[in-house]
Protein backbone atom coordinates (compact mmCIF):
# COMPACT_ATOMS: atom_id res chain seq x y z
CA UNK A 1 0.00 0.00 0.00
CA UNK A 2 1.40 3.45 -0.94
CA UNK A 3 2.08 5.94 1.84
CA UNK A 4 -0.77 8.15 0.67
CA UNK A 5 -3.26 5.39 1.42
CA UNK A 6 -2.23 5.33 5.05
CA UNK A 7 -3.88 8.73 5.36
CA UNK A 8 -7.64 9.18 5.20
CA UNK A 9 -9.05 9.62 1.71
CA UNK A 10 -9.79 13.05 0.25
CA UNK A 11 -12.95 11.73 -1.40
CA UNK A 12 -14.85 8.57 -0.79
CA UNK A 13 -18.01 6.92 -2.10
CA UNK A 14 -19.80 4.11 -0.29
CA UNK A 15 -22.46 2.21 -2.28
CA UNK A 16 -23.64 5.28 -4.13
CA UNK A 17 -26.54 4.82 -6.54
CA UNK A 18 -28.37 7.29 -8.72
CA UNK A 19 -31.23 6.84 -11.18
CA UNK A 20 -32.96 9.23 -13.55
CA UNK A 21 -36.42 7.80 -14.02
CA UNK A 22 -35.95 4.17 -15.01
CA UNK A 23 -32.33 4.69 -16.05
CA UNK A 24 -29.82 3.66 -13.41
CA UNK A 25 -26.70 5.81 -13.91
CA UNK A 26 -24.77 4.72 -10.87
CA UNK A 27 -25.10 1.31 -9.25
CA UNK A 28 -23.60 0.80 -5.77
CA UNK A 29 -20.38 2.63 -6.59
CA UNK A 30 -17.65 2.50 -3.94
CA UNK A 31 -14.12 3.81 -4.15
CA UNK A 32 -11.79 6.28 -2.46
CA UNK A 33 -9.34 8.85 -3.71
CA UNK A 34 -6.20 9.71 -1.75
CA UNK A 35 -3.78 12.60 -1.80
CA UNK A 36 -1.17 12.28 -4.51
CA UNK A 37 -3.32 10.15 -6.83
CA UNK A 38 -4.04 10.72 -10.50
CA UNK A 39 -7.18 8.75 -11.20
CA UNK A 40 -8.88 8.19 -14.56
CA UNK A 41 -12.56 7.22 -14.82
CA UNK A 42 -12.90 5.56 -18.18
CA UNK A 43 -16.13 4.66 -19.92
CA UNK A 44 -18.13 5.13 -23.09
CA UNK A 45 -21.10 7.45 -23.75
CA UNK A 46 -23.91 6.95 -21.25
CA UNK A 47 -21.74 4.89 -18.88
CA UNK A 48 -22.38 7.25 -15.94
CA UNK A 49 -19.10 9.22 -15.86
CA UNK A 50 -20.69 12.68 -15.75
CA UNK A 51 -23.25 11.56 -13.17
CA UNK A 52 -20.39 10.28 -11.03
CA UNK A 53 -18.47 13.54 -11.39
CA UNK A 54 -21.61 15.51 -10.48
CA UNK A 55 -22.14 13.36 -7.37
CA UNK A 56 -18.50 13.76 -6.35
CA UNK A 57 -18.76 17.57 -6.60
CA UNK A 58 -22.21 18.06 -5.06
CA UNK A 59 -24.04 19.01 -8.24
CA UNK A 60 -26.19 15.89 -7.91
CA UNK A 61 -27.50 14.24 -4.75
CA UNK A 62 -27.30 10.43 -4.86
CA UNK A 63 -30.44 8.37 -4.26
CA UNK A 64 -28.55 5.94 -1.99
CA UNK A 65 -25.13 5.62 -0.43
CA UNK A 66 -22.77 8.11 1.17
CA UNK A 67 -20.30 10.61 -0.21
CA UNK A 68 -17.43 11.73 2.03
CA UNK A 69 -15.08 14.61 1.53
CA UNK A 70 -12.16 15.01 3.94
CA UNK A 71 -13.88 12.44 6.14
CA UNK A 72 -17.05 14.51 6.39
CA UNK A 73 -20.41 13.27 5.16
CA UNK A 74 -21.28 15.33 2.11
CA UNK A 75 -24.52 13.97 0.63
CA UNK A 76 -26.82 16.92 1.17
CA UNK A 77 -24.29 19.69 0.71
CA UNK A 78 -24.33 22.06 -2.24
CA UNK A 79 -21.34 22.56 -4.55
CA UNK A 80 -20.11 25.61 -2.63
CA UNK A 81 -19.53 23.37 0.41
CA UNK A 82 -17.26 21.14 -1.67
CA UNK A 83 -15.52 24.20 -3.14
CA UNK A 84 -14.89 25.56 0.34
CA UNK A 85 -13.08 22.31 1.16
CA UNK A 86 -10.77 22.53 -1.84
CA UNK A 87 -12.67 21.04 -4.77
CA UNK A 88 -12.23 22.53 -8.23
CA UNK A 89 -13.74 21.13 -11.39
CA UNK A 90 -14.39 21.54 -15.08
CA UNK A 91 -17.57 20.55 -16.94
CA UNK A 92 -18.45 18.25 -19.79
CA UNK A 93 -19.67 21.23 -21.84
CA UNK A 94 -16.87 23.76 -21.52
CA UNK A 95 -18.11 26.75 -19.53
CA UNK A 96 -16.58 30.19 -19.93
CA UNK A 97 -16.99 33.58 -18.31
CA UNK A 98 -18.17 34.96 -21.62
CA UNK A 99 -17.61 38.64 -21.04
CA UNK A 100 -14.35 38.42 -19.13
CA UNK A 101 -11.08 38.48 -21.03
CA UNK A 102 -8.88 35.38 -21.12
CA UNK A 103 -6.33 37.15 -18.91
CA UNK A 104 -8.99 38.07 -16.35
CA UNK A 105 -10.25 34.48 -16.33
CA UNK A 106 -6.76 33.26 -15.45
CA UNK A 107 -6.20 36.01 -12.87
CA UNK A 108 -9.49 34.97 -11.25
CA UNK A 109 -8.38 31.35 -11.10
CA UNK A 110 -4.98 32.29 -9.71
CA UNK A 111 -6.33 34.59 -6.99
CA UNK A 112 -9.66 33.89 -5.38
CA UNK A 113 -9.85 35.99 -2.23
CA UNK A 114 -11.81 33.78 0.16
CA UNK A 115 -13.39 36.81 1.70
CA UNK A 116 -12.95 39.67 -0.77
CA UNK A 117 -12.50 42.86 1.13
CA UNK A 118 -14.41 45.86 -0.19
CA UNK A 119 -12.13 48.09 1.83
CA UNK A 120 -8.98 46.65 0.21
CA UNK A 121 -10.53 47.00 -3.24
CA UNK A 122 -11.38 50.64 -2.57
CA UNK A 123 -8.14 51.70 -0.90
CA UNK A 124 -5.86 49.23 -2.74
CA UNK A 125 -2.95 49.28 -0.25
CA UNK A 126 0.59 48.42 -1.45
CA UNK A 127 0.38 44.70 -0.57
CA UNK A 128 -2.91 44.42 -2.49
CA UNK A 129 -1.37 46.06 -5.57
CA UNK A 130 1.72 43.92 -5.31
CA UNK A 131 -0.37 40.77 -5.15
CA UNK A 132 -2.43 41.91 -8.14
CA UNK A 133 0.76 42.60 -10.15
CA UNK A 134 2.15 39.22 -9.22
CA UNK A 135 -1.06 37.45 -10.25
CA UNK A 136 -1.19 39.21 -13.61
CA UNK A 137 2.45 38.34 -14.32
CA UNK A 138 1.82 34.72 -13.40
CA UNK A 139 -1.28 34.58 -15.63
CA UNK A 140 0.55 36.19 -18.58
CA UNK A 141 3.44 33.74 -18.15
CA UNK A 142 0.97 30.85 -18.22
CA UNK A 143 -0.55 32.21 -21.44
CA UNK A 144 2.84 32.67 -23.07
CA UNK A 145 3.90 29.16 -22.11
CA UNK A 146 1.01 27.73 -24.16
CA UNK A 147 1.40 30.23 -27.06
CA UNK A 148 -1.75 32.09 -26.12
CA UNK A 149 -0.12 35.44 -25.39
CA UNK A 150 -2.02 37.21 -28.17
CA UNK A 151 -5.37 36.01 -26.74
CA UNK A 152 -4.96 37.78 -23.41
CA UNK A 153 -7.45 40.55 -24.23
CA UNK A 154 -9.94 38.35 -26.07
CA UNK A 155 -13.31 37.87 -24.33
CA UNK A 156 -13.72 34.21 -23.41
CA UNK A 157 -17.11 34.20 -25.17
CA UNK A 158 -15.35 34.64 -28.53
CA UNK A 159 -13.30 31.46 -28.18
CA UNK A 160 -14.21 28.31 -30.08
CA UNK A 161 -15.45 25.14 -28.36
CA UNK A 162 -11.98 23.60 -28.20
CA UNK A 163 -10.38 26.85 -27.06
CA UNK A 164 -12.90 27.18 -24.23
CA UNK A 165 -12.10 23.62 -23.19
CA UNK A 166 -8.38 24.44 -23.16
CA UNK A 167 -9.01 27.67 -21.25
CA UNK A 168 -10.91 25.80 -18.55
CA UNK A 169 -7.93 23.44 -18.12
CA UNK A 170 -5.53 26.38 -18.06
CA UNK A 171 -7.66 28.04 -15.36
CA UNK A 172 -7.71 24.88 -13.33
CA UNK A 173 -3.93 24.56 -13.61
CA UNK A 174 -3.54 27.96 -11.88
CA UNK A 175 -6.19 27.41 -9.23
CA UNK A 176 -5.61 26.52 -5.59
CA UNK A 177 -7.35 23.39 -4.38
CA UNK A 178 -6.87 19.87 -3.10
CA UNK A 179 -9.06 17.83 -5.47
CA UNK A 180 -9.51 18.56 -9.16
CA UNK A 181 -12.33 16.94 -11.09
CA UNK A 182 -12.23 17.13 -14.87
CA UNK A 183 -15.02 15.90 -17.10
CA UNK A 184 -13.75 15.08 -20.58
CA UNK A 185 -10.74 17.45 -20.46
CA UNK A 186 -9.55 16.51 -23.95
CA UNK A 187 -12.87 16.44 -25.84
CA UNK A 188 -12.70 18.74 -28.85
CA UNK A 189 -8.90 19.17 -28.64
CA UNK A 190 -6.42 17.99 -31.27
CA UNK A 191 -3.80 15.52 -30.01
CA UNK A 192 -1.12 18.20 -29.42
CA UNK A 193 -3.45 20.36 -27.40
CA UNK A 194 -4.86 17.30 -25.62
CA UNK A 195 -1.43 16.24 -24.50
CA UNK A 196 -0.63 19.84 -23.48
CA UNK A 197 -3.84 19.91 -21.41
CA UNK A 198 -3.01 16.65 -19.67
CA UNK A 199 0.51 17.90 -18.94
CA UNK A 200 -1.02 20.97 -17.32
CA UNK A 201 -3.23 18.76 -15.16
CA UNK A 202 -0.32 16.52 -14.24
CA UNK A 203 1.75 19.60 -13.43
CA UNK A 204 -1.00 20.93 -11.15
CA UNK A 205 -1.12 17.68 -9.22
CA UNK A 206 2.64 17.18 -8.88
CA UNK A 207 3.12 20.77 -7.63
CA UNK A 208 1.64 19.63 -4.32
CA UNK A 209 1.57 15.98 -3.24
CA UNK A 210 -1.43 16.70 -1.04
CA UNK A 211 -3.49 17.13 -4.22
CA UNK A 212 -5.43 14.54 -6.17
CA UNK A 213 -6.85 14.67 -9.63
CA UNK A 214 -9.80 12.73 -11.09
CA UNK A 215 -10.44 12.78 -14.82
CA UNK A 216 -13.51 11.31 -16.50
CA UNK A 217 -12.77 10.46 -20.11
CA UNK A 218 -13.60 8.11 -22.94
CA UNK A 219 -10.27 8.92 -24.60
CA UNK A 220 -8.04 5.90 -23.90
CA UNK A 221 -5.07 7.23 -25.88
CA UNK A 222 -3.43 9.09 -23.01
CA UNK A 223 -4.83 7.32 -20.02
CA UNK A 224 -2.01 4.92 -19.20
CA UNK A 225 0.76 7.53 -19.59
CA UNK A 226 -0.82 10.23 -17.42
CA UNK A 227 -2.75 8.37 -14.74
CA UNK A 228 -1.54 5.91 -12.19
CA UNK A 229 -4.95 4.49 -11.32
CA UNK A 230 -7.75 3.64 -13.71
CA UNK A 231 -11.36 2.83 -12.93
CA UNK A 232 -13.68 1.58 -15.65
CA UNK A 233 -17.32 2.57 -15.45
CA UNK A 234 -19.95 0.74 -17.46
CA UNK A 235 -23.73 0.93 -17.00
CA UNK A 236 -23.16 2.67 -13.67
CA UNK A 237 -20.86 -0.04 -12.26
CA UNK A 238 -17.28 0.84 -11.39
CA UNK A 239 -14.40 -1.62 -11.46
CA UNK A 240 -10.72 -1.05 -10.89
CA UNK A 241 -8.45 -1.99 -13.78
Amino acid sequence: MSSSKLLSPLLSLKSVSKSYGSVRCLDAVSFSVYAGERLALVGGNGSGKTSLVDVLSGFTVPDRGIVYMNGLRANRHHPAWFAARGMIRTFQSPRAFEQMTVLDCLCLAAWVPTSPSTFSSLIQPPNYRKKEECVRKHALAALTAVDWGERAAVPAGELSYGQRRFLSILQLSLAEGTVALCDEPTAGLDSNKASEALNLLKGWQTADQARAIIVATHDLEFVSSYFDRILRIEDGIVNEI
Binding site: S57, A83, F91, F97, V112, P116, S117, E132
Partner: peptide
Protein backbone atom coordinates in the same frame (compact mmCIF):
# COMPACT_ATOMS: atom_id res chain seq x y z
CA UNK B 1 -11.78 51.30 -7.82
CA UNK B 2 -14.19 48.56 -6.93
CA UNK B 3 -14.87 47.42 -10.47
CA UNK B 4 -11.23 47.20 -11.55
CA UNK B 5 -10.01 44.87 -8.84
CA UNK B 6 -9.80 41.23 -7.82
CA UNK B 7 -13.21 41.71 -6.24
CA UNK B 8 -14.62 42.78 -9.58
CA UNK B 9 -13.36 39.61 -11.25
CA UNK B 10 -15.10 37.68 -8.51
CA UNK B 11 -18.37 39.54 -9.19
CA UNK B 12 -18.08 39.14 -12.96
CA UNK B 13 -17.49 35.41 -12.63
CA UNK B 14 -20.64 35.06 -10.52
CA UNK B 15 -22.46 37.22 -13.05
CA UNK B 16 -21.33 35.36 -16.18
CA UNK B 17 -21.52 31.76 -15.00
CA UNK B 18 -22.18 30.87 -11.36
CA UNK B 19 -21.63 27.13 -12.04
CA UNK B 20 -18.22 27.66 -13.62
CA UNK B 21 -17.45 30.09 -10.81
CA UNK B 22 -18.07 27.51 -8.10
CA UNK B 23 -15.89 25.14 -10.12
CA UNK B 24 -13.04 27.58 -9.43
CA UNK B 25 -14.01 28.04 -5.77
CA UNK B 26 -15.67 31.39 -6.39
CA UNK B 27 -18.78 31.04 -4.29
CA UNK B 28 -18.95 33.60 -1.52
CA UNK B 29 -22.21 35.50 -1.42
CA UNK B 30 -20.91 38.18 0.97
Amino acid sequence: RLTFSAQARFLHALRDDPYAAVGLRVYSTT
